[in-house]
Simulated assay, not measured.
Amino acid sequence: MAIVNVTPDSFSDGGERLDPTQAIDDGLRFVSEGADIVDVGGESTRPGSTAIDADQELARVLAVVEGLARRGAVVSIDTRRAKVARACLDAGARIVNDVSGLRDDPDLMTLVAQWGAPVVLMHRAGRPEEKYVVPAYDNVVEDVRRFLLERAAACEMAGIARERIALDPGLGFGKSVQENMALVAGVGRLAETGYPVLIGASRKSFVGRLTGIAEARRRDPASVWLAVEAARRGAAIVRVHDVAGTRQALAVSAAIR
């Protein structure tokens, strides 16, 4: 899953793709480099970011979603809002990726069920404006697993088919460095549930704290390593900035196995 942020303030690539043509070109380049899914987002979720309204979000993402879908890309829309998801699904998006696990907008779960769209449910502790205050976990892998299974059960009760649900433990969203690493190491525990697991570690601040690299875009080597480790332990999807590098590393890892 390639990351295409159409925002002025994302932690790594904010401001790079405010021009829809640039965003579409980058998304198509990622597909040519081996991305199976292009994840388009119009609202930053970095710690300390300020929420925007649905109309602002749509103004950023809709033309990009439509342009990529028209050219055959499998597009996921990274949103918490039913209004945004509905317009993007109409424009050709196929997947909804919600950092709130379908909690922030109660209409979004109904919409996903009605469309029969695949959905990614993510675990998030706190909110971006609160800088994701880290809670006290008893056992971060088990606590996150329990939460995601509860959200998946709620989705199935609402009419979303089990095979259309993927789980994301939400690396960086209210976890310490050690807890993020435990979640990567514990991917197999999530995969045991039978749901596909998505891991998004790419360039995140905990990678910077592990490596001492302050600039987000210089964290790709460590991010690629984490993607390979996650896949090796059972992740079905890795969400990345460096598509070409990750594809190469995954190919070598698969050959060794």
Rank of each mutant, 00 (worst) to 15 (best):
R239I: 04
D107N: 14
F206A: 11
Q248A: 15
Q114I: 02
I3A: 07
V187H: 06
I77P: 06
V119G: 03
S205C: 02
V6I: 09
A136R: 13
E16C: 11
V6Y: 07
L167I: 04
I199Y: 04
V31T: 14
A136G: 01
V207R: 10
F173E: 01
P20A: 09
T211N: 09
K175G: 01
V141I: 13
A182R: 15
A136V: 12
M1G: 13
G170S: 03
N5I: 09
A125D: 11
A236K: 14
A54E: 14
A54D: 14
V120D: 06
E156P: 09
V74M: 14
V65M: 12
K131V: 02
D138G: 01
R71K: 15
D13Y: 08
V40Q: 12
A254V: 04
T246I: 11
V240S: 06
E129K: 11
P118M: 06
A2S: 15
V119A: 04
V4W: 07
L190I: 09
L58Q: 15
G200P: 04
T110C: 04
V74Q: 06
D78Q: 12
A63E: 15
R209T: 05
R239K: 02
F30E: 10
E179W: 03
D168F: 02
T79Q: 03
R151D: 00
D36C: 11
V40H: 13
A227E: 07
